Computed example of a mutant assay.
Amino acid sequence: MQETRLDTARIRAARRLIDPVFLDTPLYRCEALEPGLGCAVSIKLETVNPVRSFKARGTEVVVSLLAGNGSRAAVCASAGNLGHALAWSGRGQGLDITVVASRFAPAAKLDRIRALGARLELVDGDFEMARERAAAIARYDGIRLVEDSLDVETCEGAATIGLELLDTAPSFDAVLIALGGGALATGVGHMVKALAPEVEVICVQPLGAPAMTLSWRTRGVVTTDSTDTIADGVAGRRPIPAVLDDLLLVADDAVLVQEASIIAGMRMLLDHAGLVVEPSAALGIAAILEDRDRFAGRHVVTIVCGGNVDIDAYHRWVGAGSYPHRS
């Protein structure tokens, strides 16, 4: 395999920097899902931790290194989960954390950022506007700008999920990974291709936020003017070139799924696995629903990457309707 920015030795070392509460998350075969999906499905559950998402694996690494270098403050842009995780990790190391987010981000995510003592600044636009504002704050205040996916530590923190998959899972044929900025996909993808290259790495993104998938398909950065998806955690418009370069080395495929399939996946995870998840966490299930023939008879792992969801919105999405059926 050509080399990504990630380093397997550093990834193994990252486990020593991450609070154990975020490590060794449950991985189990979910047989109740299988009749509706037509394949064997194992779940890697990244929601049973203090921030209810995988993001703290990366922020724990970032903050540990910052604290070791004497830094006392950091700022990030976030759709919610990164800011939540950075606030948690920063509080543990005594860092002053500023999070810039869209005022349209889920209230549950914003409330948790505030509760952890971070300074929260809201912008009237989307994540890309928040990213620009966070960069301006970093320049003005002379503090570290934490950039998810661009900062290799965030990818290597996420890559510890891949280590755990390969250390504990029985043999599996494919891993389905939510694709947004790319930290999760490049991190897990790196470990899978390094240790089990025969396993298919499939990235999944909403049709309404396709920038990284289009970039992967064309092998060059494709930006979009807007996004239109309930999966706010993966709704970026401007892929980072260095992250795309890594993704091109580790992803075997990148697919786009419809909103109805995301909602159906959330409902299946509730009904058959007892899991309340945010839309991004259901992308893997959505991909199977949209292409059952591709996965028939295979053993698939999907990473349930986040559970921070506005309950009122969740009830609107999941409270009615039925699964899409394919002939």
Rank of each mutant, 00 (worst) to 15 (best):
V201I: 09
M191N: 11
M191D: 13
P170Q: 14
L195V: 07
V175Y: 10
V192F: 12
V188I: 13
P197T: 09
L195Q: 10
P170C: 13
G181A: 08
L184T: 02
A196W: 03
T186K: 04
I177S: 10
A196M: 04
S171W: 15
G180H: 14
I177N: 11
A194T: 12
A183G: 12
I177A: 11
A194S: 14
V201T: 09
D173C: 03
L179S: 02
V201E: 07
E200H: 03
K193I: 02
P197I: 09
I202K: 00
L176H: 07
V175C: 12
V204G: 00
P197M: 10
T186S: 12
G182V: 00
G180K: 13
L184F: 06
F172N: 04
A196H: 09
G180D: 13
A196C: 09
L176T: 08
E200A: 04
A183I: 10
V199A: 02
A169E: 15
F172V: 04
V175E: 11
F172A: 03
L184Q: 02
A169W: 15
A169H: 15
E200F: 00
G182W: 00
A194Q: 14
V199I: 08
A169I: 15
I177Y: 12
V204R: 03
V188W: 07
P197R: 09
A194R: 14
P197E: 10
L176V: 08
A174W: 04
V175P: 10
P170M: 12
A169K: 15
A183V: 10
A196E: 08
L184I: 04
V188P: 07
V188Y: 07
A178W: 14
L195F: 10
V192W: 12
I177W: 11
G182T: 01
G189N: 05
L179Y: 02
K193L: 04
L195P: 06
V204Y: 02
L195W: 10
C203D: 06
G182E: 00
G181Y: 07
S171T: 15
G180A: 14
P170E: 15
C203F: 00
I202L: 04
V192C: 12
C203T: 08
V201K: 05
V188A: 08
V201H: 04
V204T: 00
I202S: 00
E198Q: 14
V188G: 06
A169V: 15
M191Y: 10
G187T: 09
A178K: 13
V192R: 13
V188H: 08
K193C: 01
